[in-house]
Design a protein around this nucleic acid. Structure first.
Lengths: 143, 143
DNA sequence: TCATAATCAGATATATTTTTCTGTTAAAAT
DNA sequence: ATTTTAACAGAAAAATATATCTGATTATGA
């Protein structure tokens, strides 16, 4: 079970964080990333292809090809990746699954969850990859 | 897509909330509950059977049978239902899906998510069904 | 006691998500 | 030019989660 993001999204976030602590424009192929993150390379490919489509990641085919951040880390936020993969529905939907949960027809935890949801959104959209870099280095080795 | 709980869990929470605003020990069969919550009756049955096993809900077979809260609303919290259906892993796992995310090896959002996760746990464990009753009535009709 | 109505247990089916595969295309190096 | 390497696209397979069905059991009321 995932927490709030799909497995796809989790992997995408991890892969982008990985790229963000490397020298800018340095290229890594799917195998290298998959080994670092310990996930199948086909899955890495798939996700990074989606992020390539959405312009966050760039790619280069052929020998010495691979993936790299297409934008500066100072312009990318975690929420961008979430939006590209899972979309932003989580930040709209009722946590108890009630249909039509709203201010006028709130579920029993509507208000409290609203606060939490906003904080979660903040967590993902306040800091850029650049600002997260140091923390990211605690988790991902800068090889 | 669910927010953080599985569909099963969402339904279980809804069903228990439904029962909590009814007269104590009043019995409802799966069909009645399914009509109120607009979900298939087999699904309601399945979930309430699990909650019956875990002692939150009681059941009575045969004619005029059905389901009812096995405990007083003042002793049941939403977290009890979550625990019975999804378990409490969500409140342990890394939101970015990193393996071995911990204080000594935190992911980039470890601390912030920790706070949010604790608040979420609070949201589900501070108030009893009794205390939520009024809010629940805003969402579920007291037929 | 019999017919009926309901839960219950377990199997099955369906849907969704995740993962892998197959072949194609593009780029680079030899 | 040719070979090699890697992304890319889309299909297929596997795994997981969700939903449905079947038959058995149990309780009630007539």
């Amino acid at each position: 079970m995932t927490v709030i993001f799909s497995k796809k999204c989790e992997l995408a976030l991890q892969a982008v964080l990985f790229l963000s602590v490397k020298k800018e424009k340095k290229i890594f192929n799917a195998i290298e990333i998959s080994e670092e993150l310990k996930v199948p390379k086909e899955f890495v490919s798939k996700m990074l292809q989606i992020l390539t489509d959405s312009g966050i990641v760039g790619s280069k085919k052929g020998k010495n090809g691979g993936f790299y951040l297409a934008k500066k880390p100072s312009t990318i936020k975690l929420i961008d990746i979430v939006e590209a993969i899972d979309g932003l529905d989580v930040f709209q939907s009722c946590v108890l699954g009630f249909p039509g949960c709203s201010v006028s027809e709130p579920c029993p935890v509507h208000e409290k969850w609203g606060k939490l949801r906003d904080d979660a959104l903040k967590m993902l959209s306040e800091e850029t990859l650049e600002q997260l870099k140091e923390k990211t280095l605690n988790k991902i080795l800068d090889l």
